[in-house]
């Protein structure tokens, strides 16, 4: 179980601190599909980075299958880091522009010295994962700027899955992609998730998507163990309900516009 308890994180900004996550608790079981929704700026990505051990929280604790995380980022043990993998929102930013797509997918294995780039096993793994996420082999030799956004996101997914994680966090995985690519990616994740008993946390601002794809959905604004609810929260909730309705409307239109 991936368990985050009372995670708090604030950033220094001009004119004081900005609290990104305020005492959020979240649990993700293996084999579970959990959705996490919330408006932009509500700290979803910060929480995701903390749960992937990439960012040290100010307060709170994180345990991965019983192992408590005390050090973060490069100081954290490689094996622990590999247990939770994060797929970022924008694939263009999340891939080093100087590595070929194939190199980028293999990079985690090489960086953590599980394999050397020359090993024959690398090619086998690379081709295997390329097939699973739906990349053709010729794309592996290209540079990131020579492939499409959707293809690059598939590569990011392969890069995350190649280290055999137990938990996968998808941070707005599909918000930059068109609907059909989005569906294909989620289908690929679903297949792998069922096969490997992967716990998937799907972070999105799209309530409808979360409701249809995930077994359970959490709202980041309700994760904090806060007492009482101010008027501001109620206003925000109203705004968010409107946003959700709007998003459902748009998705309905897109579905109709798509060829059968």
């Amino acid at each position: 179980m991936l368990r985050a308890e009372r995670i708090s994180k604030s950033y220094r900004a001009s004119g004081g601190h900005v609290v990104a996550v305020d005492g959020a608790s979240l649990q993700l079981e293996r084999g579970q599909r959990l959705g996490l929704v919330g408006p932009s700026g509500s700290g979803k990505s910060t929480l995701a980075q903390v749960m992937a051990m990439l960012l040290a929280p100010d307060d709170g604790s994180l345990t991965v299958d019983g192992d408590r995380i005390d050090v973060w980022g490069v100081h954290c043990r490689c094996e622990l880091r590999h247990r939770v993998q994060l797929v970022f929102q924008s694939p263009r930013m999340a891939v080093d522009p100087r590595l070929r797509v194939g190199e980028a997918i293999l990079e985690p294995l090489v960086a953590s010295r599980l394999l050397a780039a020359r090993d024959a096993e690398c090619a086998v793994l690379l081709h295997d994962w390329a097939t699973r996420v739906g990349l053709t082999y010729d794309l592996l030799e290209r540079f990131p700027h020579e492939v499409s956004e959707g293809q690059l996101q598939r590569a990011c997914l392969a890069r995350a899955l190649i280290v055999a994680p137990r938990y996968l966090i998808c941070d707005e995985l599909s918000s930059m992609l068109d609907v059909s690519t989005q569906a294909a990616l989620l289908e690929a994740i679903a297949a792998i998730q069922a096969e490997q008993e992967l716990g998937v946390l799907l972070i999105t601002h799209d309530r409808v998507l979360a409701d249809t794809w995930c077994g359970e959905v959490a709202d980041i604004r309700e994760l904090a163990a806060r007492s009482g609810e101010g008027e501001a929260d109620a206003t925000q909730r109203h705004a968010s309900a409107r946003a959700a309705a709007l998003s459902a409307l748009v998705r309905g239109r897109q579905r109709r516009a798509m060829p059968p």
Binding site: Q49, A52, M53, L54, G73, V74, C78, R81, H82, V84, Q85, L86, F88, S90, M93, A94, V95, D96, R98, E107, P108, A111, S112, C156, R159, A160, V163
Partner: peptide, 26 residues
């Protein structure tokens, strides 16, 4: 500050690896 550095850390890169593989070529 680029996200691909975070991605590399998640993949298990050490500080040395980050410098050699991502910072220096840049």
């Amino acid at each position: 500050e680029r996200p691909f550095v975070l991605a590399a850390i998640g993949g298990g890169a050490s500080r040395h690896r980050l410098a050699r593989r991502h910072y220096l070529p840049h």
